[in-house]
Design a protein around this nucleic acid. Structure first.
Lengths: 244, 244
DNA sequence: GGGACGACTTAACCCAAGTTAGCCTTGGCG
DNA sequence: CGCCAAGGCTAACTTGGGTTAAGTCGTCCC
């Protein structure tokens, strides 16, 4: 199943990380019709209220889904990286209840709903593997709710870093303990329900405690003490449902 | 489609509130095999780590799903009432990542995974209507994340009351503006990421401002100012995806 | 080369909400 | 009947993290 050279390869890698795929599954996935699009930070792929007719597969970059609360408060409800299918729900619910936008430069493939529905109806076993991606997405949202509701700010950010490291590792772009975190401090604050000032304070504390270090130029993070960071972040990767 | 006298009637009512159902859909739903179970507050229907072989349909009472964080901190990630299918995900993900438990006395029907899978595979159009329930559940979790991450404590609790009122109304047990809220202040605090002391303070403030009133005996709440409560709670029901 | 902008940093101040610790009421049950 | 646990309520005190307000630095672009 070495087909990751294909444009839709990241989807195959992702689904293989969370379930087993047969050769015919892989063939069907790689044969999906798509159109490519690239964009820069701030690009809004689908907006709250839209009624899209295609799903979005992330091929490169970091994306986020967010909702707006009163007085311009923004809450990022999830981050998405290579291989994620963040709006499969749009096949089932007519109107978007949030916005999907790019946080870095990135590339996505749009796959028509009709093609997804065809898989769900004609090959329900493969359909279930696609749906699994969405159920894991829900699981991650629940864990974020725990994070924001019940963990200290230090624990929250440590947890987020652990999660993104684990997901990037499964997506295959991790070099040892260094990975392309790619989030601004503003984005972190919008996802963790805190102020940017405090995000800055906490990141410095994590660095002072030798848990992480960052590389200004590349926007990458290196985890210096993986066990320690998981302990601080109260991180247990089971909610990601990644196979081993 | 007056078949709500059937034991599984609440499922039909629920799915009809979020999508259209054909006569044959209703027949198929009401013909699902099930076993009934009742329980009291604290009853844990499925636990984190379990690998259930059946799904749970709520017939009566209020239930919650929760996860535990470090040092015994509990985060309730959703509430469930009549007609909800809170663990459809267990058909797709082998292990539970949270616990489902009863918050009041209540009744559930267990439906074997095999029967659900049969619907998903043989009648994918009806399957999609079941899945819609789960996608709405995710949407609600995202809104809760907004609540906990970006709203003030007063706004959060007002929002929760608006949500539960709207859901109870769709499930058909609302008398004017009075509905069976049925949550203890401890449960509210565990869901909103606050202390019980503060929940108490905020509830009193909402009552002082004539937005709600409560009936000690029956544990019901009456909304005195629906417009005002929605404004305080920054509540927009679209995320519930209930049809009109 | 210089302005404009976005990301990050720092410090001083302050308040919303947590913590602790009691007390009261209610209802189930031995 | 009387105990006790659960839920609710209150007050006094503390604190984590928000707010505001200035900076610095790098980079893009005219």
């Amino acid at each position: 199943m070495r087909r990751t050279g294909d444009v839709l390869g990241p989807l195959v890698t992702r689904l293989a990380a969370i379930g087993s795929l047969t050769e015919s599954d892989i063939d069907a996935l790689l044969a999906l019709p798509y159109t490519l699009r690239e964009g820069k930070p701030g690009w809004e792929i689908v907006r709250e209220g839209d009624r899209p007719s295609q799903c979005c597969l992330i091929l490169d970059g970091t994306f986020g889904r967010f909702k707006m609360a009163a007085q311009g408060a923004k809450q990022i409800v999830s981050y998405h990286i290579r291989g994620d299918l963040p709006d499969l729900q749009s096949c089932f619910l007519p109107a978007m209840d949030h916005t999907l936008s790019a946080l870095t430069v990135g590339t996505v493939a749009f796959i028509p709903h009709a093609a997804i529905r065809h898989i769900l109806e004609e090959t329900p076993l493969l359909g279930a593997k696609l749906l699994r991606e969405s159920f894991i997405d829900s699981s991650v949202t629940r864990e974020w709710l725990c994070n924001v509701g019940r963990r200290s700010s230090e624990s929250r950010i440590a947890h987020l870093i652990c999660e993104m490291f684990t997901r990037h590792r499964a997506a295959g772009h991790v070099d040892q303990f260094t990975f392309p975190f790619g989030l601004t401090q503003v984005a972190i604050s919008d996802s963790q329900g805190m102020s940017t000032v405090h995000v800055n304070r906490v990141l410095q504390k994590l660095k002072a405690n030798k848990l992480i270090s960052s590389h200004a130029k590349s926007k990458a993070i290196t985890i210096l003490d993986w066990e320690g960071l998981q302990a601080v972040g109260d991180f247990d990767p089971r909610y990601l449902h990644i196979l081993h």
